[in-house]
Amino acid sequence: MLLLFIILEVAALHFYVNSSSYTKAILLPISNEVVASFYSCTSGIEAYFNLQKENEVLTSEIIDLKNELERSRLSVQLSDTSVVAFDSVEYVYTSANIINNTISRQKNYITIDKGKRDGIEENMAIVSIDGFVVGYVVECSDSFSLGISLLNRDFKSSGQIGKSGWYGPIYWDGMSHENIVLSDIPRYAQINRGDTIYTTSFSSIYPPGIMIGSVESFELKESLLFDVKVKLFADMAAVRRVLLVKYNNLEERKALEEKYNNI
């Protein structure tokens, strides 16, 4: 009896400790078919009640895009000598729905209703429909994907402060679903409350210049570096529709960077 208890407990512990954030998603295919399909069913009902709000967002999106189109048409007319290379687009966007998302765990994950079949791949960025960072994809099955949320202790990326351009790693301290931390900002950096934090071009996942949040407060850590408390723009508790962003040059860039890291 005691032996059985210890064996089971050790087996569970072994499984827990040996599951990195990537291998964690191995469970996904198992839970997918049952849980995910269940969630997509219930979230369908929820989505119905959010239609009104959804519509408003989409309408304003359309207006923005139309304006953008007009502007670019204008600029093409003005400079007809410029060549626009459409076949070399760096980032490709796909839209999808979040069907399960937690914010109260220390390691939160996002389940998305599109998978390999829809062209979703690992390391695609997850951005909310209004253009704020939400997370990135870590594992895909045929028709679902699992994303690591911004609100996950394993989430790592970098961010920069809009006006001054100082950058540092961002991570979640596990405290609140509204804040994350931008750390290692030099003490001589200019930081103001309300400054916008953007993604950097160092990231092999996010396009540079995607908004993350704004500076809420900042404090010196060991009197050397600033820790900046960032208020997230994305409402992690309510995000439903997302854009998945694929970085087309990821392989090439990684190969080049790794070549010198290995020497």
């Binding site: 569970a12 469970l27 839970s31 937690t102």
Partner: peptide
């Protein structure tokens, strides 16, 4: 009791994607 605790824990781990934490707690 132990086996039923195991079943409940595993089901919860799969649904919450908590990788064994629920199982360990409910086994305990």
């Amino acid at each position: 009791v132990l086996l039923l605790g195991l079943v409940m824990g595993v089901v919860m781990d799969v649904s919450m994607l908590t990788m064994g934490v629920n199982t360990m707690a409910s086994l305990f």
